[in-house]
Simulated scan of single mutants.
Amino acid sequence: MPSRTPHRFRRTAALLTALAACVALAGCSSAEPSASSSSAASGAPSAPASAAQGEAASGSSGPTGSTEPSSTDEPRQPGPAHVSIPSIGIQSTLMELGLNADGTVEVPPADQGMTAGWYTGGSVPGAPGPAVLIGHNDTRFGRAVFHDLKDIREGAEVLVRDGAGTTLRFTVTGKETVSKKAFPTEKVYGPTKDSTLRLITCDGEFDAEGHPVDNLIVYGALA
């Protein structure tokens, strides 16, 4: 019987490409972002009311039903529960992030800025494909969980523990700061045969509306 892997791989590729429209422009801000359309146009998408400032917020419509249902003959892999980066002192539980009613990607609330989130529509860490973790740099409450992510070095370990207590070790393979207007969608969200990790937060200078103009992306691979 032919393997279903190519079909699942192509479907994952399409879903992740659609997802990129939602979270590629994740951003943090030193001032509460406006809910107006001009905020999204400036490259700092509007955040939900619960994510007022310094958020990795999305402003584009997301894929409908983007979480691929698990097959009845494939056991469901436990989702990630905790992430730590020993070299820069980052430790956080992981909340699950889905989609808001308007199709935008959920982000951790501003008052939980020290907690990162895993987008459940992407890959589970340890499974083939990129798993996406989103964290704030700063919020109106102060520095947030990924504030020091800029200091991470190639070769550093990122430890992700799942709900069953199994710890996966990812190795940082690179990082880059990119303009929100030139986000490398395929590089970040495109399918990978191996298990990979992407950590995303905000970076760069602030624009006239108080929104950072760049994103920091850290790439990792399962060790």
Rank of each mutant, 00 (worst) to 15 (best):
A110K: 08
E154T: 15
S84C: 06
K150I: 08
R140H: 14
G122R: 06
G103W: 12
E157N: 15
S123A: 15
T120L: 11
I90V: 15
F146V: 02
L97F: 06
V107W: 08
P78C: 13
L133E: 00
N137R: 15
Q91W: 01
L149K: 01
A110G: 12
A116S: 14
S123R: 10
M95N: 11
T139M: 01
G103Y: 10
V107N: 09
G122A: 15
T93C: 03
P75V: 10
N137I: 10
S66V: 02
T120Y: 12
P86L: 11
A57S: 15
P75I: 10
A144F: 00
P128I: 03
S87H: 11
V132Q: 03
P78V: 15
T115A: 04
K150S: 09
S66W: 10
G103I: 06
S87E: 13
G129K: 06
I85S: 03
P75W: 12
V124F: 02
G142C: 10
V158R: 05
I152C: 04
D151G: 00
D73N: 11
T67E: 11
A57K: 05
Q91R: 13
G126R: 11
G98T: 10
S58G: 14
V105Q: 08
G122D: 07
S92R: 12
P109K: 13
R153V: 07
G62S: 01
E154I: 15
V132D: 00
A127W: 07
G59W: 02
A144H: 01
A110D: 13
P75E: 07
T67R: 13
A57P: 04
P108G: 09
P80R: 09
A57G: 05
D73L: 10
P130K: 06
G121S: 14
R76S: 14
Q112G: 10
P108K: 08
P63G: 05
L94R: 08
S61Q: 04
R140Q: 14
T139E: 03
A144L: 01
T72E: 04
E96I: 13
S92E: 08
G113N: 06
A127M: 13
S60L: 09
S84E: 14
F141V: 03
N137V: 08
V105I: 05
G103R: 08
D148F: 02
D73H: 10
I152P: 01
S58K: 00
V107S: 13
G155P: 04
L99A: 04
L159D: 00
P63D: 02
P108D: 00
T72Y: 09
H82Y: 14
D102P: 09
H82K: 15
V132L: 15
P86Q: 12
S66R: 01
G155Q: 03
A56G: 08
S60F: 06
I152A: 05
I90R: 04
V105A: 13
V160S: 03
S66P: 04
G121F: 12
D102E: 04
G142I: 09
P63H: 02
D111W: 14
G129S: 14
A56N: 05
N100L: 09
L97S: 08
H82D: 07
